[in-house]
C-alpha cells in the first residue's frame, strides 16, 4: 500500500499541471493582497475586514477558498481518476499486485495530501506577502467576536480557520471523487463538478427562508460564511456544520468506493 501511495504521489507531482497550479498560488495571494489594500481604503482599522499582517491569511483564503480550491479539487480528481481510467493508464497500474480498493484509497489520500500541501503553501505565502504589504497593528478585529485581539490570538484564530477550511475542502473533494468515479469522460467529470459548485452557490439563496442550518447544507455556504460562524463567540454553528461535512464524506466515499470497486476501476 505504501509503494502504491508513493507511486500515486510521484505521478501526481510529475505532471506539469500540478506544478503549474502550485506556482500560481503566489500570484493568487498577491491578487488577494492588492484587493485587500484597495478595500482597506474604505474601511476603518479594527474592523474584521480591515486587512493587517495578522488577519491577511484568513482574508486571502476567504477570497479564494470557494473558487480556486474547489476548482483545484475538481481538476486533480478528474485527472487522477476519470482521465487515467478512460485513457487506459490504470491498466498499467493494475499490472502490479494491487486491489481496486487499495487503488481507490491511495488516489483519495494522495489528492487530499496534495490539497494539504497547497493549503500550507498558501498560508506561508500569505505571511510572506502580508508581512511585506500590510501594517503590523497592535490589535485586530475578528469575525463575529466582540473586542480587539492581539496578534497571537489572531494567529491562533487563523490556524483554526485554515483547519476548518481544510475540512470543507475534504467534504467537497468527497463529492468530486464520487462525480469523477461516475463520469464517463474527463470533460463530463469537470462539467459535473462545476455544475455541483453552481448548485451549491445557488442553494443558500433558494433556502434563505428556511434559515442558516438549511442554508449550510451547501458546502460552499459553509466556506463563505459558516467557518467564521463556527469560530464565533459561543461556537453556534460548530456541531451542525461539522455534522454536515461528516455526512457528505461518509455518503460520497461509501457510494464512490462501491461504484469504483464494483465497476472494477471504471472498466479498465
Amino acid at each position: 500500500m505504501k509503494g502504491l501511495w508513493m507511486s500515486e504521489w510521484l505521478r501526481l507531482w510529475s505532471r506539469k499541471r500540478t506544478w503549474g497550479m502550485f506556482l500560481m498560488m503566489p500570484v493568487l495571494v498577491y491578487a488577494a493582497a492588492r484587493y485587500c489594500l484597495e478595500q482597506n481604503g474604505a474601511l476603518s482599522p479594527g474592523m474584521p475586514e480591515y486587512a493587517t499582517v495578522w488577519n491577511f491569511p484568513v482574508l486571502a483564503l476567504a477570497e479564494h477558498l470557494m473558487t480556486v480550491f474547489n476548482l483545484l479539487v475538481v481538476v486533480l480528481l478528474a485527472a487522477a481518476v476519470t482521465e487515467e481510467a478512460r485513457s487506459g493508464q490504470l491498466r498499467f497500474l493494475l499490472l502490479r499486485a494491487v486491489t481496486f480498493a487499495e487503488l481507490f484509497w491511495a488516489k483519495w489520500t494522495v489528492v487530499l495530501a496534495a490539497v494539504g500541501v497547497f493549503l500550507g503553501a498558501f498560508y506561508l505565502e500569505c505571511w510572506g506577502i502580508g508581512w511585506w504589504l500590510f501594517e503590523r497593528t497592535e490589535t485586530v478585529g475578528l469575525f463575529y467576536r466582540e473586542g480587539a485581539f492581539a496578534g497571537g490570538e489572531a494567529v491562533r484564530y487563523g490556524l483554526a480557520y485554515y483547519g476548518l477550511a481544510g475540512l470543507t475542502v475534504v467534504a467537497m473533494a468527497s463529492v468530486m471523487l464520487l462525480l469523477a468515479v461516475m463520469a464517463q469522460t474527463a470533460t463530463a467529470a469537470v462539467g459535473m463538478g462545476i455544475g455541483w459548485l453552481l448548485l451549491s452557490f445557488g442553494w443558500p439563496v433558494a433556502a434563505r427562508m428556511f434559515g442558516a442550518q438549511v442554508q449550510s447544507l451547501s458546502i460552499t455556504h459553509i466556506q463563505h460564511q459558516g467557518i467564521a460562524a463556527m469560530l464565533a463567540d459561543g461556537r453556534p454553528m460548530m456541531r451542525w456544520n461539522l455534522g454536515v461535512m461528516v455526512c457528505y464524506v461518509a455518503v460520497c466515499l461509501t457510494v464512490g468506493y462501491l461504484w469504483f470497486v464494483k465497476r472494477r476501476g471504471l472498466d479498465v
Binding site: R17, A31, L71, A78, E83, A186, T187
Partner: peptide, 19 residues
Amino acid sequence: PSTVLAYAGLVGSYVGMLY
C-alpha cells in the same frame, strides 16, 4: 494538452478576466 486542463483553463480565464 489535456481536456481537464482545457476546461479548467477556460473557466479560470473567465474568472481571471474579472481581475
